[in-house]
Design a protein around this nucleic acid. Sequence first.
DNA 1: GTAACTGCAAAATATTTGCATCCTT
DNA 2: AAGGATGCAAATATTTTGCAGTTAC
Lengths: 141, 141
Amino acid sequence: MNIRYSEKIKELLRESKLSVTDTRTKILELFFKTKGALEHHNFEKLDGATFDRVTVYRTLQTFLDKGIIHKIPSTDTSIHYALCKDCSEDHHDDHHIHFKCQHCDNTLCLEGIAIPAIQLPQGYTADNVEVIVSGLCPNCK
Amino acid sequence: MNIRYSEKIKELLRESKLSVTDTRTKILELFFKTKGALEHHNFEKLDGATFDRVTVYRTLQTFLDKGIIHKIPSTDTSIHYALCKDCSEDHHDDHHIHFKCQHCDNTLCLEGIAIPAIQLPQGYTADNVEVIVSGLCPNCK
DNA sequence: GTAACTGCAAAATATTTGCATCCTT
DNA sequence: AAGGATGCAAATATTTTGCAGTTAC
């Protein structure tokens, strides 16, 4: 549908050695358009088409495996997924912070903001640091 | 059972204007002993007793409402709860980072580590910053 | 005694697995 | 044509709601 993403999506799927299917294309389109966190239920009705629950779960799992999307920690009862610009390239880079707006409830990936170094107590090893800031986004302020 | 926490727990419940019941006492005992994140299923069988699912959920919700425990963001399919030392006092202080061990899978609250200030883009307002570090804990290192 | 707490039944929501069929390559 | 992707049925897991019975104060 969204012609402007069509080529980018095909390329991304081929790079990941995945076949180009309708479900995958439409799910990725939504990720590109949204630029933020999405949950499973956001995908069941897409562009008029209805996708099977199971297909959506399997598609998301495939994207996770291939490093196309990542999970975002949340306190909700459903898993939050997001694709970010850097992740669509050759390297998988999740090093960005997440921002959750308390008013519109959207979660965004904020690129280009340094993740602070955390000084852990003796004996701990850090492998990954997740930062989730909540507050008001520019639209809701 | 655990005599050493018994008084502390009664006091905490009374401070929060909650009646002292068996379920609440045992759930709080586990929180005190664990000093880390717990999920719902950790509470169903406790000290030989079996608690009804619903009672556990309602107890946890009550504790959330009273500021005795808080949720920790996660990428799992179940909600993670934790009680921390500071929260059992008069003031409710969630300002600590969380550490998730990639080996033993435990989540701990690390007190006394400064939460870094995050420089947000223009237009965003920060209300709360959550930091979750993953890596190896001293036991699993 | 009364308000609050608990337990059972049942529903709503979220996620996973097996298998037969269909589609991409 | 072959292997991977999808869709249906069904199971499992998680969380919530209503109501009746029980308990703490």
